[in-house]
Amino acid sequence: MALSEKDIELKIREEAKKALATGEVSCVIGWTTTRFPDKMKPFFAETEAECDELVWNKYCINGTAKYALDDRYPSKKFAIIARGCDSRAINRMLKDKQLLRENLYIIGVVCDGKENPICEECQHKNPLTYDVLIGEPVPEQIDEKRFAEVEAFEKLSPDEKYEYWAKQYDKCIHCYACRNACPACNCVECYADQYRTGWQGKASDRIQNQVYGLTRAFHVGDRCIECGECERVCPMGLPIMRQTRKMLKDINDLFGDYECGMPDDAMPVLGGYTLADPDEFM
């Protein structure tokens, strides 16, 4: 029988307490309430009492995994409440060697979707990597419409595409929320923060906003785990996941079925090279 929301919440608290009790974990990263019933915020439980503040409901939306990067050399483990998307984020950060598995304690939770449009497209409701699992695994769906939006967009003329994105980037306020929320954006120092290189201008104007948007999409490349955080956090509502989806579609077309954040040892598609790689675009 599937666990109710409340049951899962109680289990999360219980597992969180157990994790802290081992003495090996510094904090448990999950969610807690705010004054608004539809906003649950990331929360870092450090004591047994704080574990009782952890919640689980359809507004627990923010990604949890990336907070582990706040301390890349921790003296104790981070415990992370991980849904399917968070587990994929962890897997990719491990593959990118930005995190060490032994510094993580992963409390996996089967997730049947949140109040977040991206969850309708989710192909991984079951966490892929965990130390302990809460909830019974559920059957996964294949999202037939994964690239439908991109395919429709590809039909536009170059001028129409440019016009579309130019308008979008005129709204961008250059806040870097999309980068900072993204688990794929895990570089120790982002190119955009490297001052005096002249790569990224600080001004928020049409040119610099677009330079940033393009570079972000290409740098995310094969690392996008399709969590939708970039689009959710954008204060100006730019549909930027369409760009990283385009990257994924091209990768699928060129290299075969691909999803990022799987628990395997394979070299990332864009991180390795074999003689069989397609190169007609070069």
Binding site: K41, F43, F44, K66, C175, A177, N180, A181, K202, A203
Partner: peptide, 22 residues
């Protein structure tokens, strides 16, 4: 702890007035 260090709060704030020169 939860802050992700983006500029959103400062750029939507009517009273944030810091600037850089480049």
């Amino acid at each position: 702890k939860g802050c992700i260090g983006c500029g959103t709060c400062t750029f939507v704030c009517p009273t944030c007035y810091c600037f850089d020169i480049d």
